[in-house]
């Protein structure tokens, strides 16, 4: 079985008339944690959305291969069912659907198997406790009235429950305090194993203080301009992005 999980080849993406990604190449193997860093507006969120084929972005060129299968033009839900998960920067509020019922249903869709009600509740409760979440929130409407931190933790909870092959975390650390970032890191560690991979998208380095990663990519103006290890993040922390601008 191949080690390679995701490959992005020469990807160009537009939002409306604006060209945002200008030739992205990226390979992620099973068992790895990758980080894409870059200043605001460099195309980080676009990269995440392009992998999940958000219809508001248009792929002009390039391809995305997941586990040997071309998913460039697959529908978002198919990509999700093939094992890609994205933690949203701004999770949507969906009134009238409880966290519990939503996740039960989504898990059923992703695994294709019926979900056992009581086991599922126990699993949900266990993860919520691990993530320092109020277990009462499982019966609240999805993200409705959740604080910023609660929403982000709820995304990590969904990642743990849906157990994807590739988890993309889009700015999951932004706007969180130190304790919440630790909780999120703990969630990622719980999730991580040799068969899956994580792609963290962030504009700051805070989360890298509590998490060991394999690769750091610097994304500037729609292109990856530098790739390195954890020490690259340290350099950016000290010197900022200015050194990469041209």
């Amino acid at each position: 079985m191949s080690k390679e999980l995701l490959e992005i080849k020469d990807l160009y993406v537009n939002a409306g008339e604006t060209e945002i990604l200008k030739g992205i190449n990226l390979k992620i193997n099973k068992g790895e944690i990758h980080v894409i860093m870059g200043p605001n507006g460099s195309g980080k969120t676009t990269t995440a959305n392009a992998i999940l084929n958000n219809p508001i972005y248009h792929k002009e060129n390039g391809s995305i291969i997941l586990d040997g299968e071309d998913i460039t033009n697959s529908k978002t839900d198919e990509i999700a069912r093939k094992g890609v998960f994205m933690s949203f920067q701004l999770p949507e509020e969906i009134p009238g659907i409880s966290v519990r019922n939503f996740l039960k249903y989504a898990k059923n869709k992703i695994t294709g198997k019926p979900v056992k009600i009581f086991e599922f509740k126990d699993e949900l409760k266990k993860y919520m406790e691990e993530l320092n979440m109020n277990t009462k929130n499982m019966d609240r409407s999805l993200n409705v009235g959740f604080s910023g931190g609660e929403k982000k933790k709820n995304e990590i909870l969904q990642m743990l429950i849906l157990n994807p092959k590739l988890a993309i975390l889009d700015e999951t650390d932004s706007g969180l305090d130190v304790d919440a970032i630790k909780t999120v890191s703990k969630g990622i560690e719980m999730f991580k194993n040799k068969k899956n991979a994580v792609l963290i998208i962030t504009h700051n380095t805070k989360i890298l203080h509590s998490l060991k990663v394999d690769y750091v990519h610097v994304l500037i103006n729609g292109k990856i301009v530098k790739t390195g290890g954890q020490d690259l993040a340290k350099k950016i922390e000290e010197n900022g992005y200015a050194q990469y601008k041209y």
Binding site: L52, N54, P55, I56, K75, T76, D77, I79, A80, R81, F85, M86, F88, P91, E92, I94, F102, Y105, A106, K109, I110, Q158, L162
Partner: peptide, 8 residues
Amino acid sequence: FYLMSRGL
């Protein structure tokens, strides 16, 4: 899009 990203 959010719900579809969860497999719906």
